[in-house]
């Protein structure tokens, strides 16, 4: 299991567009990926569940990756939050 914390650097937070990109990214991996904000945890395969967390710019969230390809998945997610999210 790999877990990491991220600060959301996109001003609008996790709006539909970045959330769609994230769900699609996670689909490329076999690992189960969860997102935690405060005490709520959702699986990262449901766009609806991500949106319902109302993640805003500046919020801190945790990502938990578990499975055979967890190292690759975690690296891709890392790139998403640290680099790609700003451009979405």
């Amino acid at each position: 299991m790999i877990s990491a914390d991220y600060i959301i650097t996109a001003a609008e937070g996790m709006h539909a567009r970045p959330a769609t990109a994230l769900v699609r990214l996670v689909k490329n991996f076999k690992s189960t990926v969860s997102l935690k904000k405060g005490d709520k945890v959702v699986k990262l395969n449901s766009l609806l569940n991500i949106l319902s967390l109302m993640i805003k710019g500046g919020d801190t969230i945790s990502i938990i990756v578990e499975g055979d390809d967890e190292a690759d998945a975690a690296a891709a997610i890392d790139l998403f939050f640290n680099e790609q999210l700003k451009g979405l």
Binding site: A16, R17, A19, T20, V23, S46, L48, N49
Partner: peptide, 16 residues
């Protein structure tokens, strides 16, 4: 396009 991509994700949302 982005809106339509989002709609495809919602249509296939496992929670729904």
């Amino acid at each position: 396009l982005a809106v339509l991509e989002t709609h495809i994700e919602l249509l296939t949302d496992p929670q729904i």
